[in-house]
Design a protein around this nucleic acid. Structure first.
Lengths: 197, 197, 197, 197
DNA sequence: CATGAATGAGTCTTCATTCAT
DNA sequence: TATGAATGAAGACTCATTCAT
């Protein structure tokens, strides 16, 4: 029978996590210091450590949240009533990515890139990212199946293999958007559409 | 200053850089310690600092080397005599990426991912990566122009915009290859080819 | 204030003290954390602080209980009807020490050693230990007086001075029993008896 | 080919160790802070960590030095030309203990008590202390053998068992000397001698 | 009274960099 | 020019204690 409600705990955890994500977006995982997170969260050191076992635990929570949510729209597309085309589906996803970039938490795509980097050296983060990529590719495969059913995709080709290319197109946009100055959905989509033609 | 000395300097610098790249491939930029680099290079602290101003300088040199070299083959393709198709061009690049992964320096693609992450928080590295992406996209645009000239690509579409998708397909492969277990050039290419159909 | 409440208070205090002694036996005074004591006692932080002013207060209570009780049998011996010999008296005390080692509270001798160590740096604990040693030596002196009266000890020698050696023999056994593997009462007593011969 | 001589390293290590022993004598193992040791040694944090892996390593080195040296005289006695009696041997050892108490490093007996306490909770320190006790008991057994050969000890009794009592008498003196105010070699020896009579 | 979340000063440890030899 | 011992600021984490509920 907790003295403090479960909601309160969740809210506090979220408060810390959001603060930490702002730090990571600004500094990356390894230049994010616990002191910064503590200051940014407005709590005390002890409080933060009451909600997260340590910096590693926090990093994993951040990675989980950062890579999730990119592909939320894909399942909606696959299950929706509208005609599904590849450029149309990609457009929806890119729009989401754009939105996340301007997010209050400081840019999920940016954090996602840090998560990939961390996944390249830490097995626990790697597992988080792997699971996420798998899930997104599965979603893309469903979208492609739907496009094929709608007659907007040729009958040949393994959907999972094709989904990997769609995943690449999606994250490639996120990366280019962060590094280059002149990347916008419209021209990126135009390029992809022209390629398909 | 005699020429041998200059060669000696270059060799030494390379020796340090190679050691540092092994460290980064293993640990990432921020868990790479100068002590590790010093030990791995077999030189002394003072020596390393004689060739690189500091850790930042070293990081930038690593980033430069890591992101370079991915697209060396693209210009060859554009200038060569063989017919150029998109899947064919992508195949060449993926094969190169595969080769680099098993490199003695510990995997350039891995380091490249660390470089993107670092670019997201450090403007000097960002500039290095930006220049590199620009250059690769330019090369892809040349390849696409050649493919169009060869009649293997439709007449419509802005080549630079299309090149961005090709860049995405290329780096998406590198990322998936690092995180997922079952990524191979053949199936990835098959997916891309099916998409084009 | 009703009597039951007072009993309740005493029981609670004891509950905390026992929990704390298990912690000290396991971890020593300084690696014993209040959090551990709180968890081990099954009470809340506030409750524990209601019974003990703080960690120091708890440490002193533990020290008091740990060093007491070692020599309870000595007075019984001095006042009893049986013939008193030195090996016989020592045997009784060693048996008690053995028993305490296996105690539910985790080994009083072990805690006593921690108390000596603490006495070497904290004057309040030092006073507790000093009082206890004085008292045990006094008891030994009474036992020696009785042995002399029984004709089992020569007529010469200051009893208080001799008592100090008996104290040493007693605690030396406790210490050796904790550190060495092959210490048993029988052989230790045999050694002492042979020395006297 | 070290740039700095081995002697220099040894001297530095000793400088740190001595500083640390003063800290332990004053504060005990767990209230000894690395910051104190660093300040007391006059070196920097990094330097200290260059000579000791960490606090644990330092604790073990302190424990090793503190418990050693107590019994150095015993072997000399056993191998010497003078008649050996038990009170005579004990006197030599007590005199040494007295001397160490006033030592520049702050009192080896005091630190030894801390070491026993630590041995009760840390297996590595326990092993150090165990080895030391074993060795002292062995030395006492040699002294007793010599006393017996000299006709100053009865022919019966296992020497190793008797040696344990001698060890107890020795450390009991050290402990009492630290806690009680009125302990001096003379009266302690008188008590022991009277006991033997 | 009881609770246990929150506090924040204090610990140990690392590591980029320098500079006397 | 080369060395590597030394520096010390900065980082992650702990834990005795309090106090709002």
């Amino acid at each position: 029978m907790p003295r403090v409600t479960e909601e309160h705990r969740t809210a506090r955890r979220d408060q810390i996590l959001s603060a930490a994500m702002r730090c990571v977006a600004r500094d990356g995982f390894h230049k994010m210091t616990m002191a910064n997170v503590i200051a940014e969260s407005g709590l005390s050191a002890g409080a933060v450590y009451g909600y997260f076992k340590g910096k590693n635990d926090l990093i994993q929570a951040i990675a989980r949240r950062a890579v999730g949510g990119f592909a939320a729209d894909l399942d909606t597309l696959a299950d929706g009533d509208d005609q599904v085309t590849l450029p149309g589906a990609l457009e929806v996803v890119l729009a989401r990515a754009r939105g996340l970039t301007a997010d209050s938490e400081g840019g999920l795509p940016r954090i996602a890139i840090h998560a990939w980097s961390e996944a390249a050296r830490d097995d626990e983060v790697k597992e988080i990212v792997r699971t996420n990529i798998d899930s997104i590719i599965k979603s893309w495969a469903r979208v492609l199946a739907r496009a094929r059913a709608d007659g907007n995709l040729g009958p040949d080709g393994d959907l999972d293999q094709m989904a990997r290319s769609m995943y690449s197109l999606m994250i490639g946009f996120a990366l280019q958007g962060l590094i280059l100055d002149d990347v916008d959905e419209e021209s990126y989509l135009a390029g992809f559409t022209a390629l398909l033609a």
